[in-house]
């Protein structure tokens, strides 16, 4: 039997992404969109001006977190959930490689995504937010040792396989890669202590999309943090 040709009808409007250049989470979604060739309608949320707490924004996302995706009438927050959604809907043949359906591989990718959400990114956030919002003068020893420990976890993951979740490049690399880029403004990765992580990160840095979003965004974040540390120390 001959198959009927499939006609895909896409909404002409590109999905809207509320982002901030210095947000590693927003940058993971932008990198993914770049990789799958999806155009996003970008809207910047000015964090310092508290736009993420504005009524318009919290109506979309009560949590006030960045990024938020608006795809037609569907609104979704959390970069990890957004990546999985965008891949399933717009990823085409890239979807399988970046978020494998094999139960073991998928579980391994999810494990890293949840590690990023509940442990790794939090160790960046507990430095960045109090610096910008609460006048913190510098990261504490505990902040730095927690980041060191997190790097050592990455080293364990990367001693088992080529990429962070398995031997293939997946969305887990985008999440952890963007967070790692963001961390560099707080504590640089030491190539001697974490050789595999350093090698993995250097490999990511060679990718144009990683330069364009993660590295560029991390530089913006690092600059902001330094500015506030200087300012907060003078007050």
């Amino acid at each position: 039997m001959r198959e009927l040709p499939t006609i895909k009808v896409y909404c002409k409007m590109a999905p809207i992404l509320y982002k901030l250049d210095g947000s590693p989470a927003a940058n993971t979604v932008r990198m993914l969109a770049d990789i799958i060739g999806l155009e996003l309608d970008l809207k910047t949320v000015d964090f310092v001006k508290l736009e993420h707490k504005s009524p318009e924004y919290t109506k979309l996302n009560p949590l006030g977190t960045i990024p938020v995706l608006v795809d037609g009438d569907f609104v979704l927050s959390d970069s990890h959930a957004i990546m999985i959604y965008l891949l399933s809907k717009y990823g085409g043949d890239k979807s399988e490689a970046l978020y494998p359906s094999d139960p073991h591989m998928r579980a391994a990718v999810n494990q890293i995504l949840f590690f990023d959400a509940s442990v790794y990114f939090i160790r960046l956030k507990v430095v960045a937010l109090p610096t910008i919002m609460e006048g913190m003068k510098s990261p504490t020893e505990k902040h730095l040792s927690d980041i060191e420990e997190a790097y050592s976890f990455l080293e364990v993951y990367l001693s088992k396989h080529q990429y962070i979740a398995c031997d293939e490049f997946t969305i887990a690399d985008l999440s952890v890669g963007a967070t790692t880029a963001g961390m560099q403004g707080i504590l640089k990765l030491d190539a001697n202590k974490y050789p595999r992580t350093f090698e993995w990160f250097s490999k990511l840095e060679q990718e144009p999309y990683f330069q364009k979003f993660a590295v560029y965004g991390a530089a913006a974040l690092a600059k902001t943090l330094q500015l506030f540390w200087n300012k907060n120390s003078q007050e």
């Binding site: 949590l63 979704l76 959390d78 990890h80 959930a81 999985i84 959604y85 949840f114 959400a117 509940s118």
Partner: peptide, 11 residues
């Protein structure tokens, strides 16, 4: 997507 978002909210 919603279940995932909530799981990430919790975590």
């Amino acid at each position: 997507a919603l279940v995932n978002q909530r799981l990430f909210f919790d975590s």
